[in-house]
Simulated assay, not measured.
Amino acid sequence: MGILYVTEQGAFLTKAGERIVVRKGDKVLRWVKGNEVSQVIIFGNVGLTTQATAFLLRRGIDVVFLSAGGDYRGRLVTDLGKNVALRKKQFERFSDRDFGLALAREFVRGKVENCLALLRNHNRHHQDEEVASAAHRLRRNLLKVEGASSIEELMGVEGDSARVYFSGFGRCLRGEGFTFTKRTRRPPRDEVNAMLSFGYTLLSSVVSGAVAVTGLDPYFGSFHSEEYGRQSLVLDLMEEFRPVVVDAVVLRVVNRKIVTASDFVRNPESEWLSADDEAEGDGLGPDDFPVLMSYAGRKKFIQAFEARLREKLLYIRYGKRLRLRDIIQEQARLLARAVVGEEEYRSYRMG
């Protein structure tokens, strides 16, 4: 089953029989059968009729609400999984220092190894010395991951690895009009950061859906600490897939000129601007405003994102190629089995 993205502002979702219908005024923009959709992602000013809401809940279809720019707002979900015994075991195992640290170490190891793989794959063709240097430092950091004796130490290694990785990642971008020097999140200060932030939001929705299927509690993780309203386990599982899915998509759409600099806008009225920023608004220049993807840019990025999830990659556990979306689900299931002691968790590594 797939994901239905609704980006048309002013549209609304209703139902007709067993179909989900997207309308704008009297015009039908799209319709899909309910049994063909596992998740609906809504951007900005899009409405839901009462009938559509009831239908989605009855079908157990997850609905994610994002701002028009792709910032997470909330979700409409059915009851949390009924497997109370699994969640009790999750709380018990994740509260055990040794188990929690070993699991967190595996999440970080997977992320660093996949960042390294992405840089190496790029450098096979371009032989960039700065990319090679970043890859070398990431290899050294893998040893530090193994030796980390606390979550705090592991977070330090992960943070340093991210800085090193993105210094090399910027050298992999070859599209005209794109520059990238460092990761900036809230707000994204350039076009590449805007795509990364948007992509990670989409990825979190996919991973959240995979975790929900297993019955694990998405709010209790091992690497990311508990914060009210934060899905820490989803963030944990996302780590190994950030370079595999989102970063790979960003490189693809930039280097193949699928997305261009004209697909972005600077927004002087963004919610990301603080009160202090607004108070000093007359002193802000264009480069100080957050960069957002346009409607056309988001549409092209979503298409590339979905195409990546449909790609088949080698899944070593089964010794065969699976769709990337299915690999994410299998990793969530493996995590549930690790919680109950049936298997040891091993992060996904791309070749």
Rank of each mutant, 00 (worst) to 15 (best):
G2Q: 09
E8M: 03
Q9M: 00
Q9P: 12
R30G: 03
V32L: 05
K33N: 10
V40R: 01
G47I: 04
L48N: 08
A52L: 12
A52S: 10
A54E: 13
F65E: 00
Y72N: 07
G74T: 12
T78E: 07
L80E: 12
R87K: 15
K89M: 09
R93Y: 07
F99K: 13
F99C: 04
A104N: 04
K111R: 14
E113G: 02
L119S: 05
R120D: 05
Q127I: 08
Q127T: 09
V131D: 00
N141W: 06
L142W: 01
A148Y: 02
E153Q: 07
M155W: 13
E158H: 14
R163D: 05
F166Q: 06
C172Q: 07
L173H: 11
L173G: 06
G175R: 13
T184Q: 07
T184W: 09
R186G: 06
A194H: 10
A194P: 03
S197A: 09
T201L: 06
L203T: 11
V207F: 08
L216S: 06
F223I: 15
F223V: 04
R230W: 04
L233G: 01
L233Y: 07
F241V: 04
I258E: 08
V259C: 02
S262W: 11
F264E: 01
N267P: 06
P268I: 04
L273Q: 10
L273V: 13
E278H: 12
A279S: 10
G281R: 14
G283F: 15
G283M: 09
L284W: 10
F289I: 10
S294Y: 03
S294M: 04
F301L: 03
Q303M: 04
A304L: 01
F305W: 08
K320A: 07
R321F: 11
I328N: 09
Q329P: 02
Q331W: 14
A338S: 15
V340P: 08
